[in-house]
Design a protein around this nucleic acid. Sequence first.
DNA 1: TTGACATATGAGACCGGTCTCAAATACGTT
DNA 2: AACGTATTTGAGACCGGTCTCATATGTCAA
Lengths: 356, 356
Amino acid sequence: MMKKASKRLVTISDVAQSAGVSKATAARVLGSYGTASPDAKEKVRDAAKKLGYQANELARSMTTGRSKTIGVVVGDIENQYFGQAVRGISDAARAAGFDVILANSGENAAKEKTAVRVLLGKRVDGLIVTPASVFETQHLHDIQRSGRPLVLLDRTVPGLDVDAVVTDDRHAAEAATKTLIDAGHRRISYITATESEDPIYRGPHQISLSTVMERIEGVMAAGRAAGIEQPERYIRLGAGRGGMGDKIIADLLQQTQRPTAILASDNVVALEVFKTLRRLGMSIPGDLSLIAFHDADWTSVTSPPITVIAQPAYDLGFESAQILIRRITGTGDVASRRVLATKLITRQSVAAPPKL
Amino acid sequence: MMKKASKRLVTISDVAQSAGVSKATAARVLGSYGTASPDAKEKVRDAAKKLGYQANELARSMTTGRSKTIGVVVGDIENQYFGQAVRGISDAARAAGFDVILANSGENAAKEKTAVRVLLGKRVDGLIVTPASVFETQHLHDIQRSGRPLVLLDRTVPGLDVDAVVTDDRHAAEAATKTLIDAGHRRISYITATESEDPIYRGPHQISLSTVMERIEGVMAAGRAAGIEQPERYIRLGAGRGGMGDKIIADLLQQTQRPTAILASDNVVALEVFKTLRRLGMSIPGDLSLIAFHDADWTSVTSPPITVIAQPAYDLGFESAQILIRRITGTGDVASRRVLATKLITRQSVAAPPKL
DNA sequence: TTGACATATGAGACCGGTCTCAAATACGTT
DNA sequence: AACGTATTTGAGACCGGTCTCATATGTCAA
């Protein structure tokens, strides 16, 4: 009962000594490589069990050069969308015997850079990153240069030739916009959380996320196809969680030529829109139609339930991890871009625009 | 432009050689320990930059014995509650210069055990765990035995004398129940997702989570204080996501002496309750009053908005990480139990029971 | 000029595994 | 019995850092 918390952990040499064999033999048995006689195996295993031996993976990784660990840098784990993706990564990794080191960038490129450096320092075998910005990508190129595989999740980076798993954002936005147009809308707003001092959209130079850019293109393409002038007129940026969302949305809806429909870029923005509408006393879909990206659980229980673009977040994670692991273990052919399909789930938040 | 992906990464010896100093001196400069002349420092730093040196943290951890990494095993990252907690852990860790290795147990004790073993193998400096079961705890005792600090998050394990950060579940459940009783309810149901083949509550031996047990005690205490007979009568278990939730809730609500109020154990269960009620055509709070644990974002936008018990999930994570890190770096005094307060947020899902 | 002491530096052991290589032992065959 | 081959084993180098210790150099006072 005097078992003091042992300062020094039991090593393979301890086991070898206890089993009466050489360090090399003990290592072969415990590391499951090379050959060893049944007799030796038994002695070593017994000794290991008796001593409570547990391999030092650090030392193991050090000699083998592989850590069986993948690093993940994600924008915001609090967001269900990424939560699901991380779950997918986690499941795929576990199935292949890999562990996951997670870092949260808070959608901040500088933090992302730090996180990548740390993960590379820990000698992860590969990385999965949701790049926070298409403008600051030096650290991503560094990963490539280090020879370790990288898979981009959810977003791409122009000019960076690596594997990526994304959704068909452009098409999804186009289809959703078309749905609104078909319902009779001509003044359609796209609202995103993407950082920007200026909430008005003036061009691609403001947009740091590939997904957002694709969606904007989709919205504008659908608008132009329907002969709508200045389809970018109602695009709004920076409706993030910082309290600005409410103001931006309210300003948008209180102008004389207000939009009659909104396409919300993610479920956080959609919730913000929903709350602002309620505050302003506007009804959905009577006064305003709404479609949201991401089929968050709550969107089906509001009144009315919200029409959404369902994104396969879990699969996004799962597949990206599979691709990464395949590249770590296997052959390195040319970089691929996997595009997963989204699905428009029609509920009751879309109707004809009000007669103004 | 023929820069081939370098197989072998640049080591401290390479830097030393390039700088024209010994390995030891280069290590001193780059590792910020010992002494070195300004001249040597400059030469080494220049060489390091030129070669793109990046320390191998594995090797570093190996000799120092500390990895500056904490392991986190959580029930379900997809659940916003844990997402927030992980965010809190992540922030506190980063602030102290620690990294996080995350593992998802899926609320499965066997997976949790594996995860712990892997993390210990990776030589994390300490662990934060949300134990999936109070019955299988051998691996948690093993952590203690290994001498590495452990902090329990959200839940406790009887007989395991380690730090824990939890919420005041018992009190919260008691207060919520009292609120329902004060509104006139006598038949109050507590519904939890906790695994169980038998949905009927028969005793503590079925309950593998300390939080659930505390809440049940709270519910029963409030009931008994109000002179309600068999306050455990409407307790239901196993309403997890496996589709069983709907059946269990529907069965409960269709019996002749049905409950008039429900206390939902988490936001997933609450959502299930909400959907089932809608399917059965019952209204809140007209036919049934509802209070949910966890202030999930959607609870404020439903019709009616739901009265909830707000839990400080982020703080739970943040504080547990702080406590863990303090224990890793600092003095080891006696194990503490930190109890964070919850808050009842009154919205519109509670009213007097219908006259049946 | 010399001794005392601080500062700077290099050689080499060490952490705990893996892995190469050569020696030892076992086994089968003629 | 003798030889060829396969299997088992141990010694020791190695991975890339840290760290101890002894030596070299510099500074200052006497």
